[in-house]
Design a protein around this nucleic acid. Structure first.
Length: 874
RNA sequence: GCGGGCGUGGCGGAAUUGGCAGACGCGCCGGACUCAAAAUCCGGUUCUGGUGACAGAGUGUCGGUUCGACCCCGACCGCCCGCACCA
């Protein structure tokens, strides 16, 4: 009986050194096994790792260790998403340089990750803020520019006049900049774009092939891309407005054309501006529309408002119908053509609009079961199926037939010498604007020359490196006001010119790092095509759901662009995707209000439930909701503290137990203590096993006594289940199977303790002990090495091949079948595995309990589901 | 508003995808060891009734399909997430 406690502190460091010395996690190209690329989303070096990282990387490490044991050549790298705003914020607040701050954070966090004992090939580490990384990004930008994948165009942006920078939509809160609080302006700015919309169709249709992605993520991407099939349709004006004779609209409901009651133009539509030139009231209305717009809250509550331009349009299918043209606040300029026709009966927005202005509506689709003569629309538009009414030659058609009919008629009808309509597929997806007016990002490698225009930086001059002597005491982009950096001669004509001072969106950095890892030291290219095709796609990618759209969509686009650039030979970078849940924690309300951190609180469990008091003065503490760990709620737990108290193995084990990995997991003190107790239990169990186990290398017996076979069976059953569940990333179930095996082994050990066990049992303990250690080595690699040694090994369990499953052990010669009477379980019966149905039936009906439950009623039906259950119907 | 997901003991969750509901863990209760506590070990723990064997109820609610439903179908209730004037 071992009484020593396992001490994680010294042992974990010891084994980390041993792994490093043996260099076993370095990926070797000459490895004979099939490749397996496991990747977790690389972290932003914010300062310290948090529990979310622990969970994410613990999961990836299980997969990496498992695949390695299965003989795969595993690539499991790590790097840093190192550019971005927080470094500049820190520079402003703490007067440290973004580079200093970032590299210091990287050093800290690398140390923290290493203390987790992850099986990472650190020789491939990259940081996106390093010129060795971003020089290739600049080279690719120039390639993409040459191949027409990049565009420079004006676009309307949220401009913060205090911080002198562009804000993303989510950084605008109630019309104000999230940091400065300044009223955000809408500005036209010339910006760089990746033409992702050119790939909209492909990015959409290829989602079908991503079978190992969560359906949820594919759906989110599909909605974001927003493919729709419709018709571009031109309306003639009854009288030209200046030189404008027609209005083009986009519609997905050409079937409802006879229900059209108005045409609405976006406030920014050129024709609206033209009409406003001679109409100051309209001009004022347009101005008021522009001022709204930015705030999300305003959009939610905005009423439908409009202004009649006085123009009339001719109905394309009946020249006698005139349709009024309005300017409306709910029409978007940058989708479709910036103009729509409104069919109020079948579109809620249009209905709200006509109800506000008394324009009326005509229903043209009648739901099944409704009488067309009495079907009216008042406040709720009908957008369901039905048959056409009030639509002349369309009457009685289905919606899709009517769409086709209108489409073909108008495509064949000429207006001003051209077909009046044509089919068009539209997307919500816009081009990806990558210009940021920031310092801490990858410089965009172009030079603006007054004579030559936009000139690429010559390849020989790459990388364009960020200047180090910058200041953050003033708002705006430090690159812009740097005295010398931007001033360079034009590479073409040699005259004085100016560098682009915008830097790239940090999503660009993370759109290809997974490819860089395959060839991280390559100085000539971002990645060599040979290495890329050896390793890509990533077989399993693991990260947070918050990246479901942007990061993953941009990476899919970027991979296509790199494909076109000849760097990679595939379009989809991530064959398998898994999105893990968050780490959440209880919140604690202090006696004086505000929040207390878990460290300040003592939890008490009693029959009446949980209660909490403050550690310092025993004051009562309110236990609040379980929420995402955040500084503001003070419900964070520091991984360093957990690791120094309990060890990395305990932290990893707890992060993987209980909750399914895609769901949120609640961090609790009781839970982590339970995990720590199990670490100790495994340590004792392994030591006790080692005392009884047969010598190293002893083969188990195929026909031992009953106890030995039970031990063997339990081990192989656990092996089979853990194998199946780790393949499906169901780590919580793996944990349960390991508990079960250790329960069985503990019980069997307890029975034999005082005797000398027979050889067959000693051999079974040897086998089962090794299987147990190998199973938990995926989650608790340090403890596993220590236990492996206790079992007599002098090599590393991290290098051991996965145990061979003995299927024969799992096959029982007899099975126990539950017996149901009318669907209620009444008894069970143990029979030979291959017993004939008639025999089972005879035995079942002979059972005493069955006879009692039947109460003499006649058996109507006798159902045997082989290997499963018996149901007697009376 | 649109789209998606989820509701199982005191808690996290499991149920081989239509076949013994509650595996495993946490918590709790009882016992052993101890002068005592911690640690550890053993037993119990869905609810109701019964000392007990056992009986009844039970997977958000109501209904349906089925020999059999946590699982499939319909309606409703509640919670969570995503998108949001995209014509």
């Amino acid at each position: 009986m071992t009484t020593d406690r396992y001490e994680p502190q010294g042992n974990e460091a010891k084994w980390q050194k041993a792994w490093a010395r043996a260099d076993i996690y370095r990926t070797r190209d000459e490895h004979p096994g099939p490749k397996y690329y496991i990747l977790e989303m690389f972290p932003y070096p914010s300062g310290r790792i948090h529990m979310g990282h622990v969970r994410n990387y613990a999961m990836g490490d299980v997969v990496a260790r498992y695949r390695r044991a299965r003989g795969y050549n595993v690539l499991h790298p790590m790097g840093w998403d190192a550019f971005g705003m927080p470094a500049e914020n820190a520079a402003m607040q703490q007067k440290t340089h973004p580079a200093t701050w970032t590299w210091a954070n990287i050093a800290t966090m690398r140390g923290q990750l290493q203390s987790m004992g992850l099986s990472i090939d650190w020789s491939r580490e990259v940081a996106t803020c390093s010129p060795a990384y971003y020089r290739h990004q600049q080279a690719m930008f120039l390639d993409f520019l040459a191949k027409g994948l990049v565009d420079r165009k004006k676009s309307r942006v949220n401009w913060d006049p205090v911080d002198h920078t562009v804000l993303a939509n989510e950084q605008v809160i109630d019309g104000r900049g999230w940091r400065s609080g300044a009223l955000v302006e809408s500005r036209d700015l010339t910006q760089w774009f990746f033409k992702i919309s050119d790939y909209a169709e492909d990015l959409n249709s290829a989602l079908d092939g991503l079978e190992r992605w969560p359906e949820k993520v594919r759906l989110m991407q599909r909605n974001w891309i927003g493919r729709s099939e419709g018709l571009l349709l031109r309306f003639a004006l009854t009288a030209p407005q200046g030189h404008v004779k027609e209005i083009e609209v986009y519609t997905t409901r050409p079937d409802t054309l006879f229900g059209a009651k108005f045409i609405a133009l976006a406030a920014d539509h050129p024709l609206a501006a033209q009409c406003a030139a001679g109409n100051s009231e309209l001009a004022a209305f347009i101005e008021s529309c522009r001022q709204m717009g930015t705030s999300v809250a305003a959009l939610e509550t905005a009423e439908k408002r409009g202004f009649d331009t006085g123009l009339k349009a001719v109905h394309p299918l009946d020249p006698n119908i005139e349709i009024p043209v309005w300017v409306a606040n709910f029409v978007l300029m940058d989708y479709g053509t910036g103009a729509v026709f409104g069919c109020p009966a079948h579109d809620q927005r249009d209905l709200d609009f006509v109800n506000a202005y008394g324009l009326g509506n005509i229903p043209v689709v009648c739901p099944e079961g409704q009488d067309p003569a009495s079907f009216v629309i008042t406040t709720k538009a009908y957008d369901g199926d039905g048959l056409m009414i009030n639509s002349r030659f369309l009457d009685g058609m289905t919606i899709s037939a009517a769409k086709a009919e209108v489409s073909s008629r108008l495509s064949g009808q000429l207006l001003d010498g051209r077909p009046q309509a044509r089919a068009q597929v539209n997307f919500k997806l816009r081009d990806w604007g990558i210009s940021r007016q920031r310092y801490w990002g990858c410089p965009i490698p172009v030079i603006h020359c007054e004579a030559c225009g936009t000139v690429p930086v010559p390849r020989a001059d790459l990388p364009v490196v960020l200047p180090e002597d910058v200041t953050f005491d003033k708002p705006g982009n430090p690159l812009d006001r740097h005295p010398t950096w931007a001033h360079v001669p034009c590479p073409q004509c040699g005259k004085a010119a100016r560098r682009e001072t915008d830097t790239m969106d940090t999503f660009v950095d993370s759109s290809w790092y997974f490819a860089r890892f395959t060839d991280a030291a390559n100085e000539q290219q971002p990645v060599s095509p040979a290495m890329a095709s050896k390793w890509l796609p990533v077989d399993q990618y693991i990260g947070g759901i918050e990246h479901a759209i942007l990061h993953l969509l941009y990476s899919r686009y970027f991979t296509r662009a790199m494909h076109r650039d000849g760097l990679v030979a595939l379009d989809e970078p991530f064959a398998g995707l898994f999105t893990q849940g968050m780490v959440v924690h209880e919140t604690y309300g202090g006696p004086e209000g505000g929040w207390l951190s878990p460290a300040e609180v003592v939890i008490e469990n009693g029959p009446g439930g949980r209660s909490a008091r403050r550690r310092s003065d025993n004051a009562a503490v309110r236990i609040g909701a379980i929420e995402k760990m955040s500084k503001s709620r003070r419900n964070t737990v520091d991984p360093d503290e957990i690791i120094s108290t309990y060890g990395a193995d305990t932290a990893r084990w707890f992060m993987l137990s209980d909750s399914p990995p895609e769901r949120d997991v609640a961090w609790t003190e009781e839970g982590v203590q339970g995990a720590f107790r199990f670490v100790q239990r495994l340590w004792r169990l392994t030591n006790d096993l080692a005392g009884f186990a047969a010598p190293l290398g002893t083969a188990p017996l195929a026909d031992g006594d009953e106890t030995s076979m039970a031990v063997r069976k339990a081990a192989h059953q656990a092996l089979a289940r853990v194998t199946a569940d780790v393949e499906r990333l169901r780590f919580n179930r793996c944990v349960a199977h390991i508990y079960e095996l250790s329960n069985v082994l503990g019980a069997e050990l307890g029975k034999v303790e005082s005797e000398t066990p027979p050889d067959s049992l000693r051999a079974a303990f040897r086998e089962a002990g090794e299987i147990l250690v190998q199973l938990f080595a995926l989650m608790m690699p340090h403890l596993a090495e220590e236990c492996w040694q206790v079992l007599g090994h002098d090599d590393l369990v991290a290098m051991a091949p996965w145990p061979q499953l003995q299927e024969a052990l799992l096959e029982e010669s007899t099975i126990t079948l539950p017996i149901q009477i009318n669907g209620k379980r009444r008894d069970e019966i143990t029979v030979a595995r291959d017993m004939a149905a008639a025999e089972i039936e005879r035995l079942t009906l002979a059972q005493e309990k069955v006879q009692r439950a039947l109460e003499g009623r006649a058996v109507r039906k006798f159902i045997i589901v082989p290997q499963r259950i018996i149901n007697v119907v009376v």
